[in-house]
C-alpha cells in the first residue's frame, strides 16, 4: 500500500546525512508517483540515482539511468 508523501518526506529527513544510501535511493523512488510533473519526477529520480551510485548497486543504477534518460535528465 502506497505511503503518504508526508511519511516518505519524514523518513527522508530522518535519514538525511546518514550512511544508508540504499534506503535514501529507495525513498526517492517511492516518492516518484506522487510527483505531478515530469520536472518533479526527474528531480526525484536524480536523487534516487545519486544515492544508488553511492550505494554501488549497479543494477539499480542502470535502471535509474535509463529512466532519467527517457525523461531527458541524462
Amino acid at each position: 500500500m502506497a505511503r503518504d508523501p508526508a511519511q516518505i518526506d519524514a523518513e527522508l529527513h530522518a535519514l538525511h546525512g546518514g550512511p544508508d544510501a540504499a534506503r535514501l535511493s529507495a525513498l526517492h523512488e517511492e516518492a516518484l508517483p506522487h510527483m505531478p510533473t515530469m520536472q518533479e519526477q526527474r528531480f526525484q529520480l536524480t536523487h534516487a540515482w545519486i544515492y544508488a551510485l553511492v550505494h554501488g548497486d549497479e543494477a539499480r543504477i542502470c535502471k535509474l539511468e535509463q529512466q532519467l534518460t527517457d525523461l531527458g535528465g541524462l
Binding site: 526527474r42 528531480f43 536524480t46 536523487h47 540515482w49
Partner: peptide, 10 residues
C-alpha cells in the same frame, strides 16, 4: 546532479 538545472544532470 542538476548541473544543467533541476533534474538535468549534464
Amino acid at each position: 546532479p542538476h548541473v544543467g538545472g533541476p533534474g538535468i544532470n549534464t
